[in-house]
Amino acid sequence: MNTLTTTFIKRLRDRDEAAWFELWETFGPVIRSQLTRWGRGYVGLETVRDLTQETLAELSKSIHRFDPERGVRFSTWLLAIARHCFGDEMDRRNASKRGSGRRPGSLFDGAVPESRIPQPEKAYEHRVFLAKVHAAVRQVESEADFIQFQVYRMRVFENQPGRTVSAALGISEPTVSRHLGRIRNMLRMQLESIITMYSFTKEELQEPLQAGLVGSDTMFDDALSELHVQHSIHEHKDQAGIQLA
């Protein structure tokens, strides 16, 4: 564990609203997505939103119990809290159905098929990693110059040739390269900072390496573009799920 992580946990424990907002922005969509997946067909959009908020509220109550030294991923812990919130909601719903003749305890398993019972599966962990990468991109977008970030977006995320980008924005090609380099450096630094802040185990700290985010510029750009696209696809699916619900 590192200074950034401990500082962040300390901020959360000190009820720093900005820290909670950061956490909400970063992990809120992942939790919402997971709850939507568990509750598909059983709970609606509003309930998913309520449950997401409830999960964060429960987290705020029990943040003092989280011990990063134990080596448990923060995301796994968050998932466990989300699961309890979801289970409570299902219990409440089924308990309110009179005459069903079933014990509330048995309803959660009945309502949620075995395959949906939350486990810290790889897909979920990957979503959490994508959320961290997205948080870093969002942070850089917020800090960087608008044109410079758009250059990076067009060049890397949309894979447009340098000449097209320079023509579209009315800047020279060397300027495009310069902007590209500057944003790349910012992204590297921000990724390091964010991933360090939200990672509590060695495995989590190794994730950028496995994803190819540590390497040459080309490798970095390719890996980041791939992760960004993956995140966008997940996000798109979630949106579709939310709209359907």
Binding site: R138, E141, E235, D238, Q239
Partner: peptide, 12 residues
Amino acid sequence: TFPAHGVLSRFD
């Protein structure tokens, strides 16, 4: 659809 991720929302 709504812009779920603000300015980083994807155009499909």
